[in-house]
Simulated assay, not measured.
Amino acid sequence: MTTPVIEICVEGLDGFLAAQEGGADRVELCASLIEGGLTPSIGTILEVQARARIPFHVIIRPRGGDFLYSETEFASMLADVKALRELGVPGIVIGCLTPDGRIDEDRTAQLVREARPMSVTVHRAFDMTNDPEEALEALIRCGVDRVLTSGQRPTATAGVEILKRAVDQARGRIVIMGCGDLDETTIADVRRRTGLKELHFAALRTEPSGMVYRNPEIGMGGTELEREYTNTVTDPDRVRATIRAARGA
């Protein structure tokens, strides 16, 4: 088997640097991974760009929740894509659906056109579609370069049959990038059973906040107070271990 491309999903500059240190081939740059990843700030993108030795793709997602966007949300997505193209960012990660659970081909094609020559990945909005085979053909028609998927299941292990069918269906017309709770114990088996050439994981760990004073009466953002004083970070040792397992398959 060919050596797989490993993409690490990270939050912020520290996450990017940890993934780069750990040996990632590419990074998906996000904010707010607790919401599944949102568009990071321009300052974060500029700092990553200044320090990057590997490609990074920026998620274009204005909010958490579903992938059915209002006209104003979509306008902001187009504006983000244009800004990143003008900055020379290597790639973007997008996803737009219709109310009936299909790929929104019109909006996806608009985003692809606005993005070029950047690389374009569609994220796990694909996993929320009602027909993965039809959705894959729609993405191919739109000119998307790759799609991130766990095989429409919570984990790649559970979705392995759909992942394998997607790889077979793609026939080199689009890259299938597998994800979904991949770690050093699962990644080699999933790769072997599917034939995936690109793999994506997060390699996160939690660590306590450095805050000494903690107001017990109030929290920010509606989270549990304990969660507010817990930071989620990319672990370069886990990145290395999972990459070793993937490449040893």
Rank of each mutant, 00 (worst) to 15 (best):
226 E>C: 00
69 Y>I: 07
221 G>V: 01
242 T>R: 02
130 N>A: 11
82 K>Y: 00
180 G>A: 09
212 V>A: 14
13 L>C: 07
87 L>R: 14
125 A>F: 09
8 I>D: 12
196 L>V: 00
69 Y>G: 05
147 V>R: 05
202 A>F: 02
99 P>K: 07
51 R>S: 15
102 R>N: 11
6 I>S: 08
125 A>I: 08
20 Q>P: 05
124 R>Q: 10
195 G>C: 10
190 V>Q: 10
206 T>M: 12
35 E>N: 13
153 R>C: 14
86 E>S: 10
239 V>Q: 04
210 G>D: 12
183 D>Y: 04
37 G>L: 11
202 A>I: 00
119 S>E: 11
99 P>V: 04
116 R>T: 12
26 R>Q: 14
55 P>D: 14
115 A>L: 01
124 R>D: 12
142 C>G: 04
173 R>Y: 00
17 L>S: 07
113 R>C: 01
167 V>N: 08
73 E>N: 11
191 R>Q: 15
37 G>P: 08
205 R>E: 15
197 K>R: 15
247 R>N: 14
99 P>Q: 08
233 V>Q: 03
182 L>Y: 12
18 A>K: 03
123 H>I: 11
202 A>R: 08
84 L>N: 02
138 A>H: 13
54 I>K: 02
135 A>V: 02
133 E>V: 15
158 A>V: 00
19 A>N: 12
197 K>V: 09
167 V>L: 09
17 L>I: 04
152 Q>L: 10
68 L>V: 13
55 P>S: 11
88 G>P: 09
97 L>E: 06
16 F>T: 02
51 R>G: 05
114 E>G: 02
100 D>V: 09
232 T>C: 11
22 G>K: 02
209 S>V: 00
219 G>E: 15
121 T>L: 11
170 A>C: 10
13 L>E: 15
143 G>R: 07
214 R>W: 13
60 I>A: 06
33 L>R: 03
71 E>T: 12
36 G>N: 09
154 P>N: 07
212 V>T: 06
164 K>E: 15
48 V>H: 04
207 E>N: 01
107 R>L: 01
187 I>N: 07
160 V>R: 14
175 V>E: 10
247 R>A: 10
135 A>N: 04
85 R>M: 01
147 V>H: 03
77 M>R: 06
25 D>G: 07
200 H>K: 04
120 V>N: 02
223 T>N: 06
99 P>C: 06
22 G>C: 06
223 T>G: 05
58 V>K: 00
121 T>M: 12
115 A>C: 02
50 A>V: 07
109 A>Q: 11
118 M>R: 01
101 G>Y: 07
5 V>F: 13
21 E>S: 10
92 I>G: 02
47 E>V: 00
221 G>K: 08
227 R>A: 15
153 R>N: 11
213 Y>K: 04
47 E>D: 11
232 T>L: 12
234 T>D: 08
122 V>H: 09
32 S>V: 10
247 R>D: 11
58 V>F: 03
50 A>C: 06
118 M>F: 03
208 P>S: 13
112 V>L: 01
109 A>R: 14
